[in-house]
């Protein structure tokens, strides 16, 4: 081939391997159990938010929701990778080859996208929770968890801001948007309580904040947002859903079926 016919456009060498927070640290069994809980939260939420890309109310929101999904997926990968160091599994083995009852996500993260109002209401609650969680976890005596939390909290601050701004807009927009965000908050609120329940893990593992210690700061933030939006705090009963012990909402099964289908069809393949 002569020089003239050489293509002037070539594939540039871009490093595609998004670097995981590989600290070389090996997690203890308790650290792994904890990392799976909060890692699964983010993985399931990222999986659901990914659906919005190409379907959002405006292009700017395709970008914003896509960004949030990508951030959450990054957090999940770091946490699953860390958990995997204790379990002898890779992030993909954990994401694609665990069954429903082996997942540790809380019900709130499994709730469906619904309309944009439901996605925002869910995002408000999850981001308020994750922000307080990561803020405290960044001070953890576990260097593995603290490192991941310190990185993640900066991004979660943006997710929270996104959800707060939209909550205000929807509440203060039209009659329709106000009633939609009200309904979405009512439907989502019952799943908050699960996030604040201590269990046996927290009795023996003090490197993570106790869920019960997050209740007050999270609720304070949410009440401030509701007050600014002139919305009432939903008076709903708490769901007794218990995802942390593998008892999930009926939504998780189909979410996993879709996420895992291709990887499971080719169990020996690499991608």
């Amino acid at each position: 081939m002569s020089a003239e016919t050489e293509p002037s456009v070539t594939v540039t060498d871009v490093e595609l391997d998004a670097e995981l927070t590989s600290t070389g640290l090996v997690a203890s069994a308790d650290e792994a159990e904890y990392a799976l809980r909060i890692g699964d939260d983010s993985l399931i939420l990222a999986q659901q938010l990914g659906w919005w890309i190409s379907r959002a109310p405006e292009l700017e929101e395709d970008l914003a929701l896509g960004n949030i999904a990508l951030d959450l997926l990054g957090h999940a990968r770091n946490l699953l990778h860390f958990a995997g160091t204790a379990l002898g599994k890779t992030e993909d083995e954990l994401a694609y080859f665990r069954d429903e009852h082996e997942f540790r996500s809380a019900w709130l993260f499994e709730q469906p996208n619904g309309d944009f109002g439901h996605t925002i209401a869910r995002g408000l609650l999850t981001s308020a929770f994750q922000f307080e969680l990561y803020t405290q976890l960044a001070e953890s005596s576990s260097p593995g968890l603290a490192g991941i939390a310190a990185k993640s909290v900066k991004e979660v601050a943006y997710h929270r801001d996104h959800a707060v701004q939209w909550t205000l807009r929807l509440a203060g927009g039209t009659d329709e948007s106000r009633s939609r965000i009200e309904r979405a908050l009512i439907n989502t609120w019952p799943y908050l309580d699960e996030l604040f329940r201590d269990d046996e893990l927290h009795e023996r593992f003090d490197a993570a904040p106790r869920p019960s210690a997050l209740r007050e700061p999270v609720m304070n933030v949410l009440r401030q947002v509701l007050a600014e939006a002139e919305l009432d705090e939903p008076k709903t009963s708490e769901s007794s859903g218990d995802g942390r012990h593998g008892h999930h909402s009926t939504y998780l099964g189909p979410i996993l079926a879709e996420m895992q289908v291709l990887a499971r069809r080719h169990p020996d393949a690499s991608w």
Binding site: D17, G50, E91, D92, E258, M259, L262, H266, A269
Partner: peptide, 9 residues
């Protein structure tokens, strides 16, 4: 997006 076979992909 929802069915990508690895988290990296």
């Amino acid at each position: 997006i929802t069915r990508a076979p690895s988290l990296k992909r």
